[in-house]
Amino acid sequence: MIELSHVDKFFGSVQVLHDISGRVNKGEVVVLCGPSGSGKSTLIRTINRLEGISGGQIKVNGQDIHDASVNVDALRMRTGFVFQQFNLFPHLSVIDNITLAPRKLRKIPRDAAEHRAMELLERVGLGEKARVFPGQLSGGQSQRVAIARSLAMDPEVMLFDEPTSALDPEMVNEVLAVMTDLAASDMTMICVTHEMGFAQRVADTVWFLIDGRIVYQGSEVGFFGGCDDPRVKRFLNQLQP
C-alpha cells in the first residue's frame, strides 16, 4: 500500500534521511522508533508531503506522491495525520473541529457530518464533549478529539507523530487505548512513538532509525525478542526501567 524506495532528505546541507526503503501493507501497524533526532518525525511527515523529499520515491497505492502532478490536497484527504501537539482549532467547538473537513472538502451535509462525528466521539469516549471548545479539554481528551477529526475523513492510513509525547503520564493510556482499538479494526497505521509497551502489544512491524538510517526493519517479535544489534539493545535498555 505504501512503498518507500531509497528516500533521501536534506535540510540545507544536512542529510536527515539516508536511503530509506520499506513497505507498509494494508492493515499493517508499523511503529517507527529511535533516539531523538533520528529523523522519525521527518520521515512520517514525508508520507503526507508535509515535508518534501530530496531523492527516492514514495508510492501510495502505486502513485508517486512526491510527483509534482499529484494533487496533494486529495492525497492528504485520504491520509490521516495526528500531531504531537494535537493542533485542534481553538476557535471551533469539538464537533466543528471534526465536521469542518468532511463538510467543506467532501461536501457532506451538516447533519450527516455531525451524526458521523458523534459516532466517532462516542468511539473515543468523548460523546459528552461535542459542544465544548478545545480550551476546556485535557491533553488526552484533545488528542482523542484530534484522532476523531482525522478519522472523520475516512482515511486509508493513519499517521501518528508522537501522539503521546506531549501528554501527562496519566493520560497516555487513554490515547493508546484508542489507537489499539483502531489497530484492531484493521486500520493501516504508522506510529512514531516511544511507547514500547504499545509497540510490543500492537505493532506488526518495527522500523528502528538512528541518524536517519534504518538500523532494524522487521517483525515486532524480532525487535523485542532477540535483536542482536548493540544499538537496538542500548535503546531498549534506556527506555525500560
Partner: peptide
C-alpha cells in the same frame, strides 16, 4: 499563530 494550525488544516486536505 502556531504553525501547527495551518499544518493541521493542510493535513486534513485544505488548500
Amino acid at each position: 499563530l502556531p504553525r501547527g494550525q495551518s499544518e493541521a488544516a493542510q493535513a486534513l486536505g485544505f488548500s
